[in-house]
Write a protein that binds this DNA or RNA. Structure first.
Lengths: 252, 252
DNA sequence: GTTATAATTGCATTTTTTTGCAGGTTTATC
DNA sequence: GATAAACCTGCAAAAAAATGCAATTATAAC
């Protein structure tokens, strides 16, 4: 942490504060006071002025950059998910039998499917099923069972034995966590259903925004080489995928 | 699970929480506390604030992403359907097995069910199932099958044979048309499912706003004396019911 | 250059916010 | 119905903010 010249004009000091905030996305009143050799009161008054002028966001203990501030949107990472949807849609052809999971990424995918697509979809997700109902030319089969309230998917032996009776062309799953080892999740019953879905399909595609790459959870869904396609919003030659390529997975 | 800097501003921490929740669709208070190096109480207070601000949905043990959940329509009148719901709820007791259909009246009914109701619900309606998921103490079983896009219910042989395997205490159905002869409808496959549902239950209750009294359609669902309860928003001694009483039906 | 006025700054005091902890209560899950 | 986890409430300590006041400094007028 560096020192700053002895005397500084107010305007000059505030410019320094803005620089710090924008550089680090945040700044503590105490740190700024130490750096500028002024009292925290002075810093606070500066921060109040800057906040009033709308240049930063003042919070208890310091300030945040305005760009850092979380802005809620209807669906998180909407644009990324739209890109993903475009790529995934290219895997689905007329006449296919597709088994598809739940989650917001999958929902955006379904929304982005062409209206003239003729295909049969199997799903365990209430929300995905509802979304699929907006497509006039697809047949939707809901695989019923006991519903998990949080995730609104059906689970249990009934669902799994039903899945085992089906042989589909493509399995599309969202995921909470994926790394170079494979897919992990935190809900045991959901994991069992996902396993069955993967087994029931010739090929499997995982859709995920890149932020989830590299995270893990406690329960394993499958190994990386059980997956045929990995679809994120990134370009296929992106360096993030260096650990993934050896398993024969196709990055889209 | 990654590490986070020692000192974090409250707003910054809440932004981190939102990111986690939106990324994984859910987050546990304990995990967040460990990641952020603060007590679970602090996390809980953050979650309460964020929930109050409508940015996420707080549940026991953590929080859920808002994008996952059914958001009730902004303003809904305490209209006929709420009255119907109150009456119908009186038929349902703890521990019951209830088979329930779809439609807007049924949806309002489910919304008005007490939160502490412990019961098992079987349904073929996607929207009813979603609504039931908001009730913490009920078990929801979705009877899966081919989905009809307009009405968002599952139909077909699979569903019907599944229904035939169940014996429930009460069947609650909305209806498009009812008169002194009985219930009629216009969709053959939906009629077949409704017939099976009525047969699978000890008692049947029909919920309908009074507007629909006296209308008929082409396909018969059941006779009036197959029904045990008729529930509308009107008082039971209302003159509209004069044609209905001879069949032994109970007007609520 | 001097002086009056206004602005800025630091300090002490009071007030508010935040946070963790102890306890008793509620809730989930079996 | 039992049990463990999660929740809430009140409390106290710590941190930060606001406030009043005095000292200093800048600015402008003369």
């Amino acid at each position: 942490m560096h020192q700053v010249q002895a005397h500084m004009l107010k305007r000059e000091r505030q410019a320094f504060i803005m620089k710090q905030v924008n550089l680090h996305n945040r700044a503590l009143s105490a740190d700024l006071g130490a750096m500028l050799n002024v009292s925290e009161d002075t810093i606070r008054r500066d921060l109040n002025e800057l906040a009033e002028a709308g240049e930063l966001i003042k919070v208890h203990g310091g300030a945040l950059s305005k760009s850092y501030h979380y802005v809620p949107s209807s669906t998180y990472a909407f644009s990324e998910k739209t890109i993903i949807a475009q790529k995934a849609a290219s895997l689905i052809e007329n006449g296919m039998f597709v088994m598809i999971g739940g989650g917001t990424t999958v929902r955006e995918l379904v929304r982005a499917l062409p209206q003239n697509l003729h295909a049969t979809f199997f799903t365990v997700s209430l929300t995905t099923a509802l979304q699929l109902c907006d497509h006039p030319n697809v047949e939707v089969i809901f695989l019923g069972g006991k519903l998990v309230k949080n995730s609104q998917i059906s689970v249990g032996g009934e669902v799994i034995s039903r899945i085992n009776d089906i042989s589909a062309d493509l399995c599309i799953l969202g995921t909470n966590s994926i790394d170079s080892e494979g897919i992990t999740d935190s809900d045991l019953e959901a994991v069992q259903v996902k396993k069955a879905m993967i087994k029931a399909c010739k090929r499997t595609a995982i859709v995920s925004i890149s932020e989830k790459l590299g995270s893990t959870q406690r329960l394993r869904v499958c190994e990386l080489n059980d997956i045929d396609f990995l679809i994120t919003e990134l370009a296929p030659d992106s360096p993030q995928f260096s650990n993934y390529t050896q398993s024969g997975i196709i990055i889209l």
